[in-house]
Design a protein around this nucleic acid. Structure first.
Length: 284
DNA sequence: ACGATACCCTGATGGC
DNA sequence: TGCCATCAGGGTATCG
């Protein structure tokens, strides 16, 4: 499922094909995946694509001078991929919006489960004010001090806090599990008990893991495909995600699965022990 | 205000 | 083979 690395991979693949290209036509096949005005011009028809930005797991298509701005949220199963000129092929019921470029290339928003969607804004300023200001700092740029301060202000389980996009933007279930394993921290420990050195380690490992994942084109779990339609390869290196019941790669203990805020969470009970005392919040 | 929970949705999977 | 239940989960609304 698309988290920061998958979104960034998508951005990098699309960038050279989209930047400076004029959108000749936008075909909206499913209007209800779009929030805000849904006229073709609100989706950049007739305009050039001036920028492709990312904050956390969100991508924004930006027109000249910042007008208009369109947020693309991939959700669980969404993808934004390049394709050839028009589709004469069989209609894919999960392709909801198609952009045609002056070059003859197209790109499309496809989302099977429709947890993702698009959101239009008159300009980038409004987009930033109304949506991106609500997101925490991007996981690739947050400082240890800032992360420590934010974690210190919540009693939730550490994993719940790291999944909160207002606290830090970009982490999802996969990378949080991998991050906590790399730092030997229990997903169930109270966030405020993270020490300053541990926050430093979390920050470093977070960036290391995310960068490595970006370099391998993202994780392909179920049906993520990058901007070029090819799957990523990072799932080959997962240490805990999807490995419940299997032996820990470090100590051999059986990896445990539990649920934290409704998410399956896998960790090593030996390598990631609870500091002592009780877990945070209600891990139901 | 904060934290927990329900809900949206479809496809894959497993049991019978 | 088919049918049903279960599971996956990001973001948001809503509840206490």
């Amino acid at each position: 499922m698309p988290e920061l690395p998958e979104v960034e991979s998508t951005r990098r693949i699309l960038l050279p094909h989209l930047l400076g290209q004029r959108v000749t036509r936008v075909e909206v096949r499913r209007r209800d995946v779009i929030a805000g005005p849904k006229r073709p011009r609100d989706l950049l028809e007739g305009r050039e694509i001036a920028d492709l930005r990312r904050r956390g797991k969100q991508l924004a298509l930006v027109g000249p001078g910042g007008r208009p701005g369109v947020i693309v949220q991939l959700g669980m199963t969404g993808s934004l991929t390049l394709a050839g000129p028009a589709d004469r092929l069989a209609r894919d019921p999960h392709v909801h919006v198609v952009w045609e470029l002056g070059t003859g290339e197209t790109f499309r928003f496809r989302d099977v489960r429709r947890f993702g969607g698009l959101r239009t804004f008159p300009d980038l300023r409004t987009l930033e004010r109304e949506r991106w200001s609500r997101l925490g700092e991007d996981a690739l740029s947050i400082s240890p001090a800032r992360l420590h301060e934010k974690l210190g202000r919540t009693k939730r389980a550490l994993k719940a806090a790291l999944l909160d996009q207002q606290l830090v933007a970009g982490l999802g279930n996969i990378y949080v599990d991998e991050l906590l394993f790399a730092c030997r921290l229990s997903p169930l420990m109270p966030a405020f008990e993270v020490t300053r050195p541990q926050a430093g380690q979390l920050t470093r490992q977070m960036k290391r893991i995310l960068r490595a994942a970006i370099d391998s084109g993202g994780s392909t779990v179920r049906d993520f495909v990058g901007g070029g339609g090819a799957p990523g390869a990072f799932q080959l290196t997962h240490q805990v995600y999807g490995r419940a019941g299997l032996p820990c790669r470090l100590c051999g203990a059986e990896l445990t699965a539990t649920r934290i805020i409704g998410r399956t969470s896998v960790f090593c009970p030996d390598c990631q022990p609870l500091p002592r005392g009780k877990p945070a919040g209600n891990p139901q």
